[in-house]
Design a protein around this nucleic acid. Structure first.
Lengths: 181, 181
DNA sequence: ATGTTTGTACAGTTTAAACTGTATATAACG
DNA sequence: CGTTATATACAGTTTAAACTGTACAAACAT
């Protein structure tokens, strides 16, 4: 095994490890492997280069790159004279982590909040306008209380995301250069 | 449509919304629906009751409950005289959120760190013990620098999890009772 | 002990996600 | 303008995940 091969293997191991773990961001291992590949290439890549490197279809590369773009993990770059689209990996993992929450989680919680408010509205209406048996009333009030607690939680979650998005978090959990220079 | 049905529908909407969004925790919609169902039942449930309620197999209920238990979203409870296992939903979503990171994310980052340290070790060895062309040397040093940056990031991430796990986070992003009493 | 009940392993089936190849729209170039 | 190159929509295929039913092991009751 020659040296170039060893270097290649060390990379391969790390890429594999990154890809296996990217399910935390809700993407498949293949997409993870693509990100890993882009991460180690210091130049931007075209879809054809990715296809070649990963031995996969161009269609897959296209959709995967789109997914990674939506996650803010990859961006399209322009280069004069090059017709093909070029993509490169973003390398600021702190930012990627924070963006993931701000984008993905916020979207999801917003949908939940909507559903809950609608349900709460309907229950409140019943409570105010209908003649109810005592057991029904308690049932409803118990549900409304649950909804309220969930709303408070989502409110907290959003403020947490604000906290992360502003760089305030780095005052309390600071970046350190323990390993890198 | 009578009142009981309306109440049921409002719950159903919220459960559906919860279940659709639980992919953020890496679980399937069915598992989300199970959690939602348990969440609204104020009593613990047996596997047979879940099976009945969701019209699914007992095997699925068993594995789903296990998954939810690993996520700290459900816990087994004991009740004198009842032979069947009883499970109930945990309701402290703040804690669930934090536990998710402390457990799942930490596990994953630990694996990544291991792979990276191994790779870095091999590269460092080459650098110190082999005669290398200048281009190879630069290649290796560039990779090592990448590994170091990743390690610093993971170090930060773990300290962030510490920050969440200690209740320090609640001093900066406090719980509020805006909706609930 | 013996018989019953309950939870889960496992193999097989169904359903959904990932992936490919072709066909087409859009943009770049002469 | 016509021609060529590039990315993506879409239908079809493959692969993986989710789910079920049966069979068995562990726990309990008698």
């Amino acid at each position: 095994m020659d040296r170039t091969e060893i270097i290649e293997n060390t990379r391969e191991r790390v890429i594999e490890s990154i890809s296996q773990n990217m399910y935390l961001y809700g993407v498949s291992p293949s997409i993870g492997r693509l990100y890993g590949t882009l991460y180690f290439k210091d130049k931007p890549m075209t879809l054809d280069e990715m296809k070649e490197e990963l031995k996969m279809s161009k269609t897959s590369m296209s959709t995967s790159v789109r997914t990674l773009t939506e996650l803010n993990m990859v961006e399209k770059v322009w280069k004069k004279g090059v017709r093909k689209d070029l993509y490169e990996a973003k390398t600021d993992w702190y930012q990627i982590f924070i963006d993931f929450f701000s984008n993905q989680w916020r979207k999801v919680t917003a949908m939940n909040v909507k559903a809950i408010k609608q349900s709460r509205k309907e229950l409140t209406y019943m409570l105010e306008n209908e003649v109810l048996a005592e057991s029904e009333k308690q049932q409803i009030q118990s549900d409304i209380e649950k909804y309220n607690q969930i709303l408070d939680y989502y409110d907290w979650l959003n403020r947490l995301f604000d906290f992360l998005e502003s760089d305030e978090i780095f005052h309390h959990v600071e970046k350190r250069n323990k390993w890198s220079e």
